[in-house]
C-alpha cells in the first residue's frame, strides 16, 4: 500500500556564520497516509518546523527526498497548502476574497470560486464575516480564514506550523475541535507541527516524535486507544489509555530537554 506522502532520509544542514554547520534535521523517514492527520511533535530544536517547511517546498533539503504521490516535490505548490502561526491574511481583501485568492490565481471560474469560498467559510463558522476585512477579526478568527483559504484551494495535504500557538487557551481548544470537524467534512490529509502534547494526542492519527539537536525520528506513536476521531476534547481525555500516553510523551519530552 502506497501512502500519499513519503519523507525519505531527509536531512537539513544550515551553514552558520564562522564556517560551522548545524544539522537541524538528520535522516528522517516516515510516511503519511491519505486522509490522515499526522502530528509532528518534539521539543524546540527538534527541527519539526524545518521539516514541515521542506515538505512545503519553502526550504530545500540537504539530502533525501519528499515524495507526493511518488513524485519528488520541487519548490512550493498549491497541492501543499500551508497555514502559519503568524497572522497571514491579505488585509486588503475581504474574508471572502481572501478565501477565493488561491482559486482565483489557479483559474477556477468565478461562480464555482464563490460557492467553494462560501462552503469553507461556513465550515469554519465565519459566514457572517464574509464581507468583512480581516483587520476586524480576532486572532482565532483570522486563523479560521487562513484555514478556509487553504482548504478551499483543494490541496492534497494541509500543512500547519503551530497554527494555534498564538491563541489563548479557550480559542485554542475550540480550534482543535474545529480541525477534527474539518478533517471529517473535507477528508483532507493534514500534517500539523506542535509542541503541545494534549493537542497532539487529541488531533493525531499518528504522532511523529522528533528528538532534538539534531532532529531525528525518535518514535512513531499511534494513539490506538482512540476509537476513531472524537469531536470533543474532554471525551478523548476521559478515555482509558489517554493518561498513559500523555505520561509517556511527557517523559520523552523531558529526556530530550535534559540532553
Amino acid at each position: 500500500m502506497s501512502a500519499l506522502l513519503h519523507i525519505q532520509n531527509v536531512s537539513k544542514t544550515f551553514d552558520l556564520p564562522g564556517g560551522q554547520a548545524l544539522t537541524a534535521v538528520d535522516d528522517v523517514s516516515f510516511a503519511v497516509e491519505k486522509g490522515s492527520i499526522c502530528v509532528l511533535l518534539g521539543p524546540s530544536g527538534s527541527g519539526k518546523s524545518t521539516l514541515l517547511r521542506m515538505i512545503a517546498g519553502l526550504e530545500t533539503q540537504s539530502s533525501g527526498a519528499v515524495l507526493l504521490n511518488d513524485t519528488p516535490i520541487e519548490g512550493p505548490g498549491r497541492e501543499r497548502g500551508m497555514v502559519f502561526q503568524a497572522y497571514s491574511s491579505f488585509d486588503w481583501l475581504s474574508v471572502g476574497k481572501n478565501v477565493e485568492f488561491g482559486m482565483k490565481i489557479n483559474g477556477v471560474p468565478k461562480p464555482e470560486r464563490r460557492a467553494r469560498a462560501e462552503r469553507f467559510i461556513g465550515l469554519v463558522g465565519l459566514s457572517k464575516f464574509i464581507d468583512a476585512y480581516p483587520s476586524r477579526l480576532s486572532g482565532g478568527m483570522r486563523q479560521r480564514v487562513a484555514i478556509a483559504r487553504t482548504l478551499a484551494n483543494a490541496p492534497d495535504v494541509l500543512l500547519m506550523d503551530e497554527p494555534f500557538g498564538a491563541l489563548d487557551a479557550e480559542t485554542r481548544w475550540q480550534m482543535q475541535e474545529l480541525m477534527i470537524e474539518v478533517a471529517e467534512a473535507s477528508g483532507t490529509t493534514m500534517i500539523i507541527v506542535t509542541h503541545d502534547i494534549e493537542e497532539a494526542i487529541f488531533l493525531a492519527d499518528k504522532i511523529v516524535f522528533l528528538s532534538s539537536h539534531p532532529g531525528r525520528l525518535k518514535e512513531e506513536i499511534l494513539p490506538t486507544f482512540k476509537p476513531g476521531r472524537l469531536r470533543n476534547k474532554e471525551d478523548v481525555i476521559a478515555l482509558p489509555g489517554y493518561a498513559e500516553m500523555e505520561r509517556k510523551i511527557m517523559r520523552m519530552m523531558r529526556e530530550e530537554g535534559h540532553k
Binding site: 498549491r78 500551508m82 503568524a86 490565481i105 483559504r149
Partner: peptide, 12 residues
C-alpha cells in the same frame, strides 16, 4: 511579512 509571501507561494 514573510508569511504573506509564503502563503501566496503555497497557494500556487
Amino acid at each position: 511579512r514573510k508569511e504573506l509571501i509564503e502563503t501566496a507561494l503555497t497557494l500556487g
